[in-house]
Amino acid sequence: MAVAVKTQNLPLIKKIRNIPREEYYVPGHRTCAGCGPALQYKLVAKAAGPNTIFLGPTGCMYVANASYLCTPYRVPWMHTQITNGGAVASGVEAAYQVLIRKGKREGELPNVIVMAGDGGSVDIGLQAMSAMMYRNHDALFVCYDNEAYANTGIQTSPTTPYGANTTFTPPGPAIPEGKKLFPKDPPQLVIGGHPAVKYVATASVAYPVDLMNKVRKALNVQGPTFLHIHAPCPKGWKFNESKTVEIAKLAIQTGMWILYEWENGEYKYQHKPREYKPVREYMKLQGRFAHLQEAHIAKMQAFVDAKLKAPGIPVAVPAPPPRAQA
C-alpha cells in the first residue's frame, strides 16, 4: 500500500535577514494591538508556507482572526470546536493519505497544523491532541500559550501561572495570591506519553528565527510533532501592548520559560541565559501579578528554581524553599 509522504525539506533560516518575505497570515484581523498569539501565528504561517492547512480550535485565534465572514488566512483554514483540533486534523491528514494514494489529489502531503490555545491543547482539547499523537498522524500541533482563556475574558487555564489574577482566580482576603495551583507542563505531557512523537520544541515570540526554524523542523519530520509557543497577552497579563516581545524575552531571562528542542529523545537548549534574573523582574511588569506579596513571589521563584534544576540548568538566584503547595 502506497503511503503519502512529505518529501519536503523546508530549509532552516540562518539569519533574520533571510526570513521568507511572503505572508500567509495577512494584515486585517481583529486581534488586540500587540497580540502575542497573532505574532506567533504570523511566524508559524510564514515558516510553513503555501502547502499548508490550518485547523483553528475556538479561542482567541478563532474569534479575533476569523471575524464576520473574513479571515487573515491565505492558506486553507477550518474552524474546529475547542475540544477537537487534534481529531479534525487527524481526519484531514487521513483523507489526504487516502486521496493521494488513490490518485484523487496530486502533489505533496500538505502541512496539517493545529493552532490551538492552551485550553484547546492541554485542557478541554487534551484528549484529541493526545490521540492525534498516539495515532501517528503526520500533523503539527501548536499550542500557542497565552496562559489563560483570554477570548472569554481572561479565565484561568491549566497553564496560567501560580499567583496570576484572572477572572476565575481573583485575589481577595481569603485567597490573597489569586491562583493557588501550579501549571501543567504541556511539552512534558507530550514527551512523556507519546512514543510516536519524535520532535517537540518550545519557542517564544521573542526569538522569531528560532521559532520559525522549529516550525520547519517539525514539518520536515514524518509524523506528529508538537510546539509549545510562549505568546504574551497584553490584555490578559495587563502590560503595555508595546512590551509583548520584551516580556517574552524576560520570561526566558528569568527562567519562567525555557527554550528547548527534544528530538529523538535528546534535549537541546536555546538562548539559555548565562545567569538567570529573579522572576520578580518578569512579574513586576505585569498587572496580573501586582497583588502578590513577597512570600508568593518567593514561592514562584522556588517553583522556577526547581524546574530549572530538573533539566540540569544551574540556578543563579538563591530561593527560599517552597511552601506547602495549595
Binding site: M78, V88, A89, G91, A94
Partner: peptide, 13 residues
C-alpha cells in the same frame, strides 16, 4: 466526539 471530529475533517478534505 473524536469519531465525528475525525470524519468531519476527512469529509471536509
Amino acid at each position: 466526539h473524536a469519531q465525528l471530529s475525525v470524519v468531519l475533517g476527512a469529509s471536509a478534505a
